[in-house]
């Protein structure tokens, strides 16, 4: 596909173009960190962000989402779909891949989750090539670069950005802002940026890679390290909360004070929390923290591998940063493969 070269002024033009028809969500500074927020003006955007506190997931599958509105007296319910068009701007390749996983999870087995998909189909993804920061390990899980899953991908090329369209929509937008076609030298600069990025990724699995980590997990089910992690893990669920590919949820009913009108809501849930696998009768199928942390790490590296044809961990490093006791998937995998 043909590339374009976007100056900073062009990027500003692109964002104002998007703001005409989309709610534009982009990385903005929040005290000492960054987060994906709806922007009011182009200047809010921080193209140089390292990573965000929460992944962009929250704008497609919010922490609390109304599924149904009901009236108890009439036993009536109506589904609620929010399809406000949203443009997710400035996503790094790991987050782009994570959204691909969510797309699949919410549409698998002919079970189309319209609450997610209605929003997603109206959304736009503008990717931004990144530089590694302290916690990421994307090269070990195969998510260093995004080959698809975006409408437009921006890669720094000198003072400008090399832009590729990944969809018809993306191409139309790039044409509409009258971006000028990129030269071969611009493409080369972008290529060089990516090559340097890859070199700078230092946190890695020692002995396995994205395709062999599954095998390692299968062989280490009974490894003593799971028990050791139990001593450290507080089972707080912070890792679930910040993970771009955690899509498990709870459903709760919320009734208004008139005891008649109410909403059935979906809330983010986490497999590290003690009652995640507990049934009403009292049996808890993953009672111990060691079982839950083994479940979580396996779910990211092994359990869903065959469905997604890849680890579901995208190596963004948010869970390591969020963890009070610094439990780290890279250290776990390296310990297991010793």
């Amino acid at each position: 596909m043909q590339g374009f070269l976007l100056t900073k002024e062009n990027i500003k033009g692109l964002v104002s173009e998007l703001m005409k028809s989309y709610r534009v969500v982009a990385p903005v500074k929040k005290e000492t960190r960054f987060d994906f927020c709806e922007i009011e003006k182009f200047e809010d955007i921080r193209m140089d962000y390292d990573t965000t506190i929460l992944p962009p997931k929250k704008h497609l599958s919010p922490p609390v989402e109304t599924l149904l509105k009901f009236k108890r007296s009439e036993n009536k319910a109506e589904p609620v779909f929010d399809n406000t068009p949203v443009a997710l701007f400035g996503l790094h390749p790991c987050d782009i891949k994570a959204i691909r996983h969510l797309d699949q999870a919410f549409s698998e087995n002919n079970n189309y989750d319209r609450h997610y998909l209605a929003k997603r189909e109206k959304s736009l993804i503008i990717g931004l090539e990144c530089q590694p920061y302290d916690y990421c390990f994307c090269s070990s899980v195969g998510s260093t670069f995004a080959k698809d899953g975006f409408d437009i991908m921006l890669t720094p090329a000198g003072d400008s950005y090399f832009a590729e369209a990944g969809s018809k929509k993306g191409e139309e937008i790039l044409k509409s802002i009258q971006a000028k076609p990129a030269q071969e030298s611009d493409a080369k600069k972008a290529e060089q940026f990516r090559a340097e990025k890859e070199k700078k990724i230092v946190r890695k699995f020692n002995k396995v890679n994205a395709s062999t980590v599954k095998e390692l997990m299968e062989k280490t089910w009974d490894h003593k390290h799971w028990k050791e992690l139990e001593e450290r893990c507080l089972a707080c669920g912070s890792c679930n909360l910040v993970c771009p590919t955690c899509f498990c949820f709870d459903v709760q009913d919320d009734v208004s004070l008139n005891l008649n009108d109410g909403e059935r809501k979906r809330l983010w849930d986490g497999c590290m929390l003690v009652d995640f696998a507990k049934v009403a009768g009292g049996e808890n199928f993953r009672e111990h923290r060691s079982q839950r942390i083994r479940h979580r790490i396996n779910r990211k590296m092994n359990y869903l591998y065959d469905r997604f044809n890849s680890p579901t961990c995208v190596g963004c490093g948010r869970c390591v940063r969020a963890c009070t006791v610094k439990i780290d998937p890279v250290e776990i995998v390296n310990e297991l493969s010793k």
């Binding site: 087995n109 079970n111 989750d113 709870d250 459903v251 497999c271 696998a277 591998y305 065959d306």
Partner: peptide, 14 residues
């Protein structure tokens, strides 16, 4: 919880 293979609560391994 959900019955449609999404919410994750009933998962045993894969």
């Amino acid at each position: 919880k959900c019955g449609v293979g999404k919410c994750g609560h009933c998962q045993i391994n894969s």
